[in-house]
Simulated assay, not measured.
Amino acid sequence: MSAAPRRILRDIALARSGDKGNRATLSVVALDAADFPLIDRCLTVDRVRTHFEGVVHGAIDRYTLPQLSAVHFVLHDALAGGVTRSLALDAHGKTLSAALLDLPLPD
């Protein structure tokens, strides 16, 4: 019998993003409010910083929005100078929010 595939954040949430200058904003919203406590517990600043090591060079601000079953992050110094200044391909909020949804959930 094979083991069940490991669940990732994408299985229980969606993400929205924005970018302005050298800052990206990422919101992770539970698809079902019952999953919000798990998202709130496992999406810490430290875990997001580790996930984006080498990409986010500044502070990370975290805001909990329980009424929306969401967690919102502001990633400072995350866009290689800003979308219009960066030579990186797709190094803006949309790409970062998709990457965040690949985080494995705890067993």
Rank of each mutant, 00 (worst) to 15 (best):
H51F: 05
F73Y: 09
G54I: 09
A91F: 10
A24E: 01
L96N: 02
S27H: 05
R41A: 12
R49F: 04
P5W: 10
R62Y: 08
S17T: 09
T25V: 10
A70P: 01
V83H: 04
A3R: 09
A91K: 09
G81F: 06
S2Y: 11
H72K: 13
A98G: 12
D107I: 13
D61W: 14
A15D: 08
L38P: 00
L101A: 12
F52T: 00
K94W: 10
H51R: 14
L38A: 00
L105Y: 06
D46K: 03
I60Q: 04
A33G: 04
V83C: 07
T44R: 04
A34E: 08
V83S: 06
L103T: 03
T84H: 13
A4C: 08
P66N: 04
F52K: 06
P106G: 06
H51C: 10
G58Q: 02
L79R: 06
P106C: 08
V55N: 08
H51S: 09
R47I: 03
A80W: 12
I60M: 07
A13C: 09
L43D: 03
A59R: 13
G82I: 02
T44Y: 03
G18H: 04
L75A: 02
L89M: 15
D102G: 15
L79K: 01
L79G: 11
A15N: 10
A13P: 07
L105G: 05
F36V: 02
S97P: 07
A15M: 09
R85H: 12
G21H: 02
G18L: 01
R41Y: 01
R10V: 14
H72D: 14
S97Q: 08
D46W: 06
D77N: 08
D35T: 01
Y63T: 10
V56K: 01
I60R: 06
H76L: 09
L65Q: 02
D102F: 08
P66L: 00
G54V: 01
L96W: 08
Y63W: 09
V48F: 00
I12L: 10
E53M: 09
P106T: 12
V83R: 05
R6F: 11
A3G: 12
S27G: 08
A24F: 07
A30S: 07
P104S: 09
L43P: 00
V28G: 00
D11N: 14
A98M: 12
C42F: 12
A78H: 03
A70H: 04
V55Y: 06
P5Y: 12
R47T: 12
